[in-house]
């Protein structure tokens, strides 16, 4: 039978084994449990109140792993990320789904993690390790541990854009989602980061589009180049929502809309 254990102090967490799941908001683990909990041997239930805190730290903002989407939406420091938090489910889901959980949400979920990828967040593990979110997502499923928090740099709201494409509104699963960090200095773009959700088995960066934009001004020629290169780094697949072919066809179109919205 599946054991459930409270974890009041995340720093004293036992080393998780392969059949251990961490329960925070419940939108993934409870769903699995409702459907039989196959493959789950033990559930660690996060109850450490420190994990829900959001506060400034250095030049950025630290978001506890158990902070919910509603918590993010209530934090003025995180305004740039509000559009991404706002599209996670309906209000009830946003009261439950956590930032830490979103890092582990399988395709086609994980729009918020994708936004964190574009924001170049750092992931802090409960054992003290920290690593860039891209590395954490890349090893997802192969590494074990409990995420305690993520830190995001302070983002200018005007330099961060998010777009979710879904068939139903306001709540629908992503056909794809896009986030772009477009820092500017002296009329030119700095180091651009563009993330795509639901265009692979995890949030991925559109490295071709990033290179086409970084260091250039955001003019039609640069947008054309970014759209032409936007599939570099992405690995879309067929799923019940859309085919790989469709996703490849529309990805440049939605990236163009997002970029033109910025100008």
């Amino acid at each position: 039978m599946i054991e459930i254990e409270r974890l009041d102090d995340v720093a004293r967490a036992p080393a998780p084994g392969p059949d251990v799941r961490v329960l925070a908001g419940g939108t993934l683990v409870m769903r699995a449990l409702n459907y039989g909990g196959h493959g789950i041997g033990r559930i660690l239930r996060l109850t450490d109140p420190a994990l829900r805190e959001i506060h400034s730290e250095g030049g950025g903002v630290r978001i506890g792993a158990a902070a919910t989407m509603a918590d993010v939406l209530a934090a003025p420091d995180l305004a740039a990320l509000h559009p991404a938090a706002q599209v996670v489910g309906g209000p009830a889901i946003r009261n439950m789904a956590t930032v830490g959980g979103n890092l582990f949400a399988p395709h086609p979920y994980g729009d918020f993690a994708m936004a964190l990828l574009a924001a170049n967040a750092q992931v802090h593990w409960a054992d003290g390790r920290a690593e860039p979110i891209e590395a954490m997502l890349g090893a997802r499923g192969r590494s074990a541990g409990i995420v305690a928090a993520v830190t995001v740099p302070r983002l200018q709201h005007s330099e961060f854009r998010f777009r979710k494409v879904s068939r139903t509104k306001p709540k629908g699963v992503s056909l794809m989602s896009i986030a772009a960090h477009l820092p500017r200095a002296g009329g030119r773009l700095g180091d651009v980061r563009i993330g795509f959700g639901a265009m692979g088995d995890r949030p991925l960066r559109a490295t071709g589009a990033e290179q086409a934009l970084s260091g250039r001004s955001l003019d039609p020629a640069a947008i054309d180049a970014a759209c032409a290169a936007c599939l570099d780094g992405l690995a879309p697949a067929d799923d019940p929502l859309a085919s790989e072919w469709y996703r490849r066809q529309v990805a440049p179109i939605h990236l163009r809309r997002l970029l033109e919205e910025v100008r």
């Binding site: 449990l33 039989g36 909990g37 196959h38």
Partner: peptide, 9 residues
């Protein structure tokens, strides 16, 4: 229900 699910599996 959980027992029935796990046994069915």
């Amino acid at each position: 229900e959980l027992q029935a699910r796990q046994a069915a599996a």
